[in-house]
Design a protein around this nucleic acid. Structure first.
Length: 435
RNA sequence: UCCCCGGUAGCUCAAUGGUAGAGCAUUCGGCUGUUAACCGAAGGGUUGCAGGUUCGAGUCCUGCCCGGGGAGCCA
């Protein structure tokens, strides 16, 4: 009897007797033959039970199964073209661990449901094949990120989640009381802290949840989302664009290599992912605005690009497009000005194809102490809270930079799904914090 | 915060201002290769909440609550 059987690896167990630890996904009956469908977390597998081949007790236990009852099914794995997945379990014995009572049946049917109902039952919805495929894909994205940075000599230095002040805007912070020390805030970005660790370790990144109290109500926003933020000492804007391009390529190609079955479950057109390879097109903001004006946009020079602009730009290309050197006035206080055009910031955004919008935002950071101090004052930021950040410009300041990549947006794009809320186990949104 | 759409059975949805219905789910019966199986039957309702118009309101009006999509902002 094998104990390490999983449905995903059923082919390796052909002809062997196995124990399947799982749940009932569905039960199809046809007279004296039963087709229970089991799921075990790795996939769904059909079993077959003939009345003449099993005891009366086993037959009864299977016919009495209710959806999502937990169980141990024992039998032989057989290749069977008529079974979904190509293999089925010839059931010999069934042990019921917990039977879902019929007066409180499992609420999620294998039929259509609305988003409100599904999100309110998110703790159960994640059991469905599509949702578990998305969570496996998310896992793969995260794993690839860590692999990539490890292979490129980066050190993981996580930033704090509780912070004393804003990283960027001050209006979009979740605030809480911190003992006798006054207010603390949930982090919006780990960037300022990885700037410090980059000066200590050279090439670093942080990976963790970030929080935005923005009242955004769109398919691209969550109030709590995960971001990976590399930061590199001595890096120029060109280095950052190259790093972002290599990272995104690595993530996409590994997803294709390792998560084909999941992408198939999601009915993703993988041809659109195959050609995600460097180099990605690069446009200056000036060039981007020209293209947009030619395509009918009315965004004036100097303003940040809107969602419709991003879609217009990305539909020009079959891979992500990098837009660099935005007007400084539209960007954050900590960005290094372009020495040739001080009205521009040495920054870059990467826009995913197919209208998925910005997946990366980054920049070279202000390295000069006096200019940084001036920018802090212009933005009415509390100087005291940024004392340590200013110190980084007092003790061996170097050109450096980094970017943030949004895990959920990246996963949604690779999965080809319309809303990012399905790419995180328990999404946090403007009007939803349960379950 | 603003704009648009919606709320009817556990779920997805019907119902000209005139007797609240179907499919799925649940229960019972039938069927030896089913593929969201199929066939037959049964149970299941304070039509989001409060008020108003009307002989009569799921339907029309007002307010509120809840959700969805989008804008702005962002990853």
């Amino acid at each position: 009897m094998s104990t390490d059987f999983t449905i995903a690896r059923a082919a390796e167990f052909e002809g062997r007797d196995v124990a399947l630890y799982g749940w009932l996904y569905n039960l199809r009956e046809s007279g004296k033959i039963l087709f229970p469908l089991f799921r075990d977390g790795s996939g769904v597998m059909q079993a077959v039970v003939s009345k003449k081949d099993v005891s009366q007790e086993v037959w009864q236990r299977v016919s009495d199964l209710t959806q999502e009852s937990s169980l141990i099914a024992r039998g032989a794995v057989r290749r069977e073209p008529r079974a979904p997945g190509g293999y089925e379990l010839v059931l010999r014995d069934l042990e019921v661990l917990h039977r879902v009572p019929e007066d409180t049946p499992y609420p999620i049917a294998r039929k259509e449901h609305g988003p409100d109902f599904l999100l309110s039952h998110r703790h159960l919805w994640i059991r469905s094949p599509r949702q578990s495929a998305l969570l496996r894909l998310r896992h793969e994205v995260i794993r690839s990120i860590h692999e990539f940075f490890d292979q490129h000599g980066f050190i993981l230095t996580d930033s704090p989640i509780l912070t004393p002040a804003a990283c960027e805007g001050t209006t979009t912070l979740f605030e809480l009381d911190y003992f006798d020390l006054g207010k603390a805030y949930l982090t919006q970005s780990g960037q300022l802290y990885v700037e410090a660790t980059a000066a200590a370790l050279g090439k670093v990144y942080c990976f963790g949840p970030t929080f935005r109290a923005e009242k955004s109500k769109t398919r691209r926003h969550l109030t709590e989302f995960w971001m990976v933020e590399p930061e590199v000492a001595f890096a120029t804007l060109d280095d950052l664009m190259k790093l972002g391009e290599d990272l995104v390529t690595y993530i996409v190609q590994k997803a294709l290599q390792r998560r084909r079955p999941e992408l198939e479950t999601l009915e993703r057109d993988t041809r659109k992912l195959e050609h995600i390879q460097p180099p990605f097109p690069r446009l200056s903001y000036d060039e981007a605005i020209k293209i947009l004006h030619r395509k009918g946009s009315h965004t004036p020079w100097g303003e940040d690009l809107g969602g419709a602009d991003e879609t217009r730009l990305s539909e020009e290309y079959d891979r992500p497009v990098i837009v660099h050197r935005y007007p400084a006035q539209a960007k954050a206080f900590y960005m290094e000005p372009d020495p040739e055009r001080p009205d521009l910031a040495l920054c870059m955004d990467m826009l995913a194809p197919e209208g998925y919008g910005e997946i990366i935002g980054g920049s070279q950071r202000l390295a000069d102490y006096n200019l940084l101090l001036q920018r802090l004052r212009e933005n009415n930021l509390p100087e005291e809270a940024f004392r340590w950040y200013l110190d980084l410009r007092k003790f061996g300041s170097v050109p450096h930079g980094g970017f943030g990549l949004g895990v959920e947006r990246t996963t949604a794009w690779i999965a080809g799904i319309p809303h990012i809320r399905e790419t995180i186990p328990f999404p946090r949104m403007l009007y939803r914090i349960y379950p």
